[in-house]
Nucleic acid binder design. Structure first.
Length: 554
RNA sequence: GCCCCCGUAGUUCAAUGGAUAGAACGGCCCCCUCCUAAGGGGCAGAUGUAGGUUCGAUUCCUACCGGGGGCACCA
């Protein structure tokens, strides 16, 4: 191909992009290269495509090559070539051996003393999926839950517990009760505007090492962590580390001193410390230390960046956060650059925000929808759905299936969407069990597994003379898998994988619906069973990367 | 006020600058003597407005309109 371009048109500097067309009428693979170089060589796209096609038609793996539309070269491969290519799809189902410098993926970021809300699903599930995909492709991944366990909120909470609590010690409160107290604090601020200042003072005391406050703080952390772990387990979310804000407590001062010395950190209003950016950056100053000398999240993020760069030498640092934090991370990146650090591997992976009808999902206002409640409702609805199906159910354990379907539906609703999109929370949408949904994937997998069980032994595919339209369609879809995984990783976009899995289900179900598999004649039967097995494998692998489990029977 | 993100069928979402803008849900109509009908097939239905760049724009640029977010002592 490259040779044809070079000898015929003297083009050496363009890489030929082969694509898999969306529509099977356009062949197995296609390229618009003739359109792209047309102007450069001064010939019509059709003329160029003509040369390409006639050169390609001689290849023995090519069944047919033709020009279509304004100048596409469309290629149909031979059945033998298509079937032979399935080996790479099979390989893509297996996790590669890990190597290279680590990739840090930071996500979820819950706040201590608050339960997870529905809005945490975005960063938690996208982060986990991205981390899973990296790991599958052979990257050494550090899954990092950076918890908000430091800051003025502890001052607020301490005041709230002593003012409005019922005298219990901190470790005896539930996370929900702590949240109520936190909300109460913010309501009371309207009556007493000194509360905020009091909270800041209490946090300063904690930061200065007050033993009583330290014990209080430790209790709250313990309570919160145990509540979190049950939810993460249900969501198939796990972490390698949860080094949190407090971990950087003693790592900030040296950096601040250095930065002051080098002039990056300057004095701001009221004795605070700020970083300034050039006019053209359009960024406001970045506050790195408060007037009272206490640190902020920005200070800890700077210390964290330093720690990660120095101690872990990662090739990438992906911080998954919602878009409201974009400016903060741009300021952070610019600050690190001013400090002379190399942050080329750093990327703030943005996700949209979740809104709930017209209310804001702010924890401070107390109208947060708790994630636990969402998951419970999801499983309840799945149980109802299973009951509707009555005798048709083949699942060995309906309760287990309900969990898989319910939680899967929630997760799929998130990860199947472009992460940058805002999500408006809606029960019916979130808990969809039909069409483009987790249960559709799960059902398709169970269907494929069922065929395989009945088929007995599955052997390698035999060569066939010709392929039906449905067979060719399914083959081509299966062949996309490897490329889809790479695309999902390079763009940090798990929905690319989700969309592909949905497409595979459609392709398989369409094939299944009017193509006999077990009753087919040899060698066709062997090929069809093999394709069914591969479909099941790809679905299971892909779904798991997206945190979703699939059953063998349902 | 300044800055950032988003506007695609009735609804929720897709579409590395490429072919006739794909799905799902909802609506209407078909398909179980056949490997699971939680499925398959069909019909109707969309790029906010006005310009620009390009052989070609949902995609890139400009303005406007509409929605969301951010802008130093919260994270």
């Amino acid at each position: 191909m490259q040779k044809v371009l070079s000898s015929e048109f003297g083009i050496d500097d363009i890489s030929v992009g082969w694509e898999r067309p969306q529509d099977s009428a356009h062949g197995d693979i296609t390229t618009p290269v003739a359109l792209q170089i047309s102007k450069k060589v001064g010939k019509s796209p059709k003329e160029i495509a003509e040369k390409i096609v006639s050169a390609l038609a001689k290849e023995k793996t090519i069944e047919k090559a033709e020009i279509a539309g304004p100048g596409y070269a469309n290629i149909w491969l031979t059945p033998a070539a298509l079937v032979a290519a399935l080996g790479s799809t099979r390989q893509a189902c297996m996790a590669k051996v890990k190597s290279g410098a680590p990739v840090i993926v930071e996500y979820s970021q819950p706040n201590i003393a608050k339960p997870l809300g529905a809005h945490h699903l975005l960063t938690t599930l996208f982060g986990q999926s991205i981390a899973n995909i990296y790991e599958h492709l052979g990257y050494e991944v550090i899954k990092w839950n950076y918890m908000g366990d430091w800051g003025t909120q502890f001052g607020k909470l301490s005041i709230a517990v002593s003012k409005w609590g019922d005298g219990r010690i901190a470790s005896q409160y539930t996370v929900d009760e702590l949240l109520d107290l936190y909300v109460k604090f913010h309501n009371e601020v309207e009556n007493d505007d000194t509360l905020e200042d009091q909270a800041r003072a209490v946090f300063k005391k904690l930061e200065d090492g007050d033993p009583e406050l330290r014990a209080f703080w430790q209790d709250i952390i313990t309570v919160t962590k145990s509540a979190l772990s049950s939810i993460y387990e249900q969501l198939h979310v796990s972490f390698d580390t949860d080094k949190s804000e407090s971990f950087y407590e003693d790592k900030m001062e040296p950096i601040l001193e250095k930065g002051i010395a080098s002039g990056v950190f300057k004095e701001g209003e009221g004795g605070s410390l700020i970083v300034e950016f050039p006019e053209e950056s359009n960024m406001p100053p970045y506050l790195v230390r408060k007037g009272d000398g206490a640190t902020l999240y920005s200070t800890r993020d700077i210390a964290q960046m330093h720690y990660r760069l120095e101690e872990l030498k990662p090739q990438e640092i992906l911080i998954v956060t919602d878009i409201a934090q974009k400016l903060h991370f741009e300021q952070l990146a610019a600050t690190c650059e001013q400090l002379g650090w190399d942050i080329t591997g750093f990327d703030n992976v943005l996700v949209g925000r979740m809104r709930y009808a017209d209310k804001s999902m702010s924890t401070r206002k107390g109208n947060v929808l708790r994630l636990e409640e969402v998951l419970t409702e999801a499983v309840r609805r799945a149980e109802e759905k299973i009951k509707e199906h009555g005798d048709h159910i083949q699942a060995d354990d309906p309760a287990e299936l309900a969990k898989m379907m319910g939680i899967g539906a929630v997760s799929y609703g998130i990860v199947s969407q472009n992460r940058k999109q805002d999500i408006v929370f809606d029960w019916d949408k979130m808990l969809s069990f039909e069409g483009n949904s987790a249960p559709y994937l799960q059902y398709t997998h169970a269907r494929a597994r069922s065929v395989i069980t009945k088929a007995g032994e599955v052997s390698d595919p035999k060569q066939v003379e010709s392929l039906t339209e449905k067979e060719r369609g399914l083959l081509n879809t299966l062949l996309k898998f490897e490329h889809v995984l790479k695309e999902a990783r390079t763009n940090n976009m798990p929905h690319i994988l989700a969309n592909f899995l949905f497409e595979l289900c459609q392709s398989f179900n369409s094939f299944y619906n009017d193509t006999p598999i077990l009753k087919a004649e040899e060698p066709t039967r062997t090929l069809r069973v093999y394709m069914t097995l591969l479909t099941a494998d790809v679905l299971k692998t892909g779904a798991q990367l997206l945190t979703i489990s699939v059953p063998d029977r349902m």
